[in-house]
Design a protein around this nucleic acid. Structure first.
Lengths: 199, 199
DNA sequence: TCTAAATTATACAGACCTGTGTATTTTTAC
DNA sequence: GTAAAAATACACAGGTCTGTATAATTTAGA
């Protein structure tokens, strides 16, 4: 029975998992438009028919790719934030996580921003996933800023998000993690500007 | 005689101009990868052969597109900055220019960031154009910050660039100019942090 | 073991892609 | 007006793309 990712209740098959991880790597590294479904299925050693039976088409595979990326990102942040108790430290961990994630991998920038840049149709379902991802990051930072008792935590969170996104965009262009460090130190300055309501 | 854009001394022909403006619009609105050379030549009412004789190929056309975009951006900034004498005002004009540019057009984000996201090959000549564009903007802001006697003008300029780039990226995702306004007000706060060396 | 679902291999349709070849016509410059 | 440059129309090569059709095969559960 053909099952569409995200709707079906049946757990992912191994073929489906392999398709997703392969698509994830190729879409990120080579670009979404530049990666064909034939390439994905071949590299995953899964027939193209299965790809279409499992995902329905390329568009759904793109959405699944971004959803997977979103999940991985949160898992990664959860991991590195594990020991830290104070909200300020956890706030800075978002910057550190971006920075760490940069080095090592052949860095191709933010998968969500790249998808936004590549997909012209604003109604494409994958773009809703990308928007949701950024929204959750901002909310996460706003929550931490609130817990740390900064004044206007939502405004602070938006500022920090702008710094982060700009830093990633510039880092990928310059092939340096410098922008991330600048963003981090600037974040501290902005946190200082927002002061702290002592309870 | 076949002439390659950027090397030849002969001024652009009308056909070449039409090719460039058509490519510019399509590359920006639909994406570089999604726009074929056939489409460009048809929409420009110029034969495909002329496109190849003039530009040599699609890659060179992409580079020309970004160079053109860069020129247009500076012309626009020059225009809106015309009356302003003080460097601080001119610094804020960069933010205003980004914001103005946002509204009106069907906004698809920063053409240079989009090219960076779409083109996987880091050696592609168009990416050098994109890098140069951002570098010049940062230098421009650093010069203004220096003239306005802010301390560490280069550092301030980098911070402002990060805010700008992040704001554009978020604005295109959210379809709001809100991020640009946030970036603008945050820029003022950072300028305050950097104080002013009174001469 | 037997049955039903999942996956496979293979071929194909129809469209699009970049780039070239060639002969003809138009435009430009002197 | 004439010669050279530019642009045109048209066809074509050799790929790639998404998506589908079909029949055979493998896997997994009762």
């Amino acid at each position: 029975m053909d099952e569409v990712e995200g709707i079906g209740k049946r757990r992912r098959s191994k073929a489906q998992e392999r398709l997703l991880s392969t698509a994830s790597e190729l879409f990120y590294r080579e670009g979404i438009g530049a990666t064909g479904v034939d390439t994905v299925s071949e590299r995953a050693s899964v027939s193209k028919r299965t790809l279409y039976n499992r995902y329905g088409g390329k568009d759904a595979l793109i959405s699944a790719y971004l959803r997977d990326r979103d999940e991985q990102w949160w898992a990664y942040l959860r991991g590195v934030s594990e020991g830290i108790a104070d909200p300020e430290g956890r706030l800075m961990m978002v910057f550190d996580a971006y920075g760490e994630w940069l080095s090592g991998h052949d860095f191709r920038g933010c998968a969500f921003a790249n998808a936004q840049a590549e997909i012209a149709d604003p109604g494409h379902p994958a773009l809703a996933v990308a928007r949701g991802h950024k929204e959750r990051i901002e909310e996460h930072m706003a929550t931490l800023a609130r817990e740390a008792k900064y004044s206007k935590p939502e405004v602070l969170a938006e500022k920090l998000l702008l710094l982060l996104e700009g830093a990633v965009a510039m880092a990928v262009m310059r092939r340096t993690s410098g922008p991330l460090e600048t963003a981090r130190s600037t974040a501290l300055e902005l946190m200082d500007v927002h002061g702290r309501r002592v309870q």
